[in-house]
Write a protein that binds this DNA or RNA. Structure first.
Lengths: 247, 247
DNA sequence: AGACCAAATATGGTCAGACCATACATCCTG
DNA sequence: CAGGATGTATGGTCTGACCATATTTGGTCT
């Protein structure tokens, strides 16, 4: 009973929720997309018959979810513009829930292992020459992986190394051609940034990690999904030795 | 250049962002956790030297991220209480970005395939007898899988079948013992609900799906990770034939 | 003493209006 | 025609008021 629903499932919806629903309705109905503008706050308030503060709360929610960005002033770029930043929302989500101890670092790391292996396999298997709309970005993604490896070689301290390491693994996710995975990956790496620096410091030598990175990159360029998966598995076992499949 | 940063990276932070930072600070510093209460809106506004509307916008953000829930009235359960509903936030995130065409159904389905396979393997490999804090819930999770199978047998229409199918696969994710995965899984299935109903209607016969469900359940109870992974792969290939590894 | 009902109160929800900050639009001037 | 001064639309913020809700408090009747 103490773990009862704390929400009001039948309660009258709040004004800002109504606004939210109406805006979402308008997005799908009118086929609005990234770059399109929403009416001004005052205008929306009048149209929907609510106060401006309710409109603002709804817009704040949409901003939190990475769907709109607001800009003051005047002109075509001012006002609430539809955007697409799902990664920012996920990053905030993870950071707050980690702070609340709702999620453990272990769970985040395990999730990263899952995504990373999948992405490597998928990137290797991706048809590099097909007419897929993601092909172009997939090709530059592998190039970015190589650049990140070079930057890691030149890194002078663990923090810098990790920065480029994140870029490498993000490019790997992008190479798999799934934006949802990329967004999740970005959030995970942001949450794990400090943790990763500690891991690099603990390891001391980054040579093994770099060997892994090169193996992963080569396997993907060769289109060898099996080799890519194996390389990633070994890489992550090296970076997070305690987080293996059998605890 | 048109894809320039639309944010103001150096701009003076808005009042509600300051409030957000302070609340987050307090959560981590004071070690607040789920169930603890935040000060009232008026009190917070006075403490932080901002207007109540700014406090409210910050609380709206936290509510969106599934970190607080507000309740009017008086007494111990009133006010802004720390909660943990990361799944709701993810569900909203997916729904809105699917509506914006930022994410495609294909990307969501592929992500589901990844999670499902991982969860099945993990659930089977989970040490059912260890002292892990997740063991208890893992055991009830497999029981809930069996219940969901029975409920699907009794379902009279595709929508009802899918409802219990979602419960089955959610229990599967829970059996893997990772709350982040569960939250993601819940959001994915919510987003795919309509799509899944269509798939069931298209299939006509749910016998094959149920055979798969039983195989998955048995493999997990037997602790056979390989069999669990294979069963899930075949199950998903049956449900989403067009979303295989090689497009 | 107990039960029950009414008033007080604390809390979120909402609105209206005012004012500030920002940044483009417009117009006036040289 | 160039350039600055002014206008204006937009988000950002505060204040104060009032409403809705739910508990707490206290009084009253039995």
């Amino acid at each position: 009973m103490t773990t009862e629903e704390r929400r009001r499932p039948d309660a009258r919806p709040r004004a800002f929720e109504e606004v939210l629903a109406r805006i979402e309705e308008r997005i799908t109905a009118d086929g609005l997309t990234v770059g399109d503008r929403l009416p001004g706050e005052r205008q929306l308030a009048e149209q929907l018959g609510v106060g401006r503060s309710s409109v603002r709360e709804a817009l704040r929610v949409l901003e939190t979810l990475g769907v709109v960005a607001s800009q003051a002033g005047r002109g075509p770029d001012a006002g609430a513009v539809l955007t697409s930043r799902p990664g920012d929302a996920l990053t905030d989500l993870l950071r707050l829930h980690l702070g609340l101890a709702t999620l453990s670092m272990r769970e985040v790391i395990d999730t990263r292992l899952m995504i990373e292996q999948w992405a490597a396999s998928r990137a290797a298997a991706a048809p590099t020459l097909s007419a897929s709309p993601l092909t172009a970005s997939a090709r530059t993604a592998t190039a970015r992986m190589a650049e990140a490896i070079a930057a890691m070689d030149a890194a002078r301290d663990p923090a810098e190394f990790v920065e480029h390491d994140i870029a490498f693994h993000l490019a790997l996710a992008e190479a798999a051609g799934n934006r949802l995975i990329v967004a999740i990956m970005r959030a995970l790496r942001d949450a794990l940034r400090r943790y990763a620096v500690d891991a690099v410091v603990r390891l001391g030598d980054t040579g093994g990690l770099q060997d892994d990175h090169r193996r992963i990159h080569r396997a993907i360029e060769d289109g060898d999904a099996g080799a890519a998966t194996d390389a990633v598995a070994e890489h992550l076992a090296r970076a997070y030795p305690e987080s293996g499949r059998d605890s």
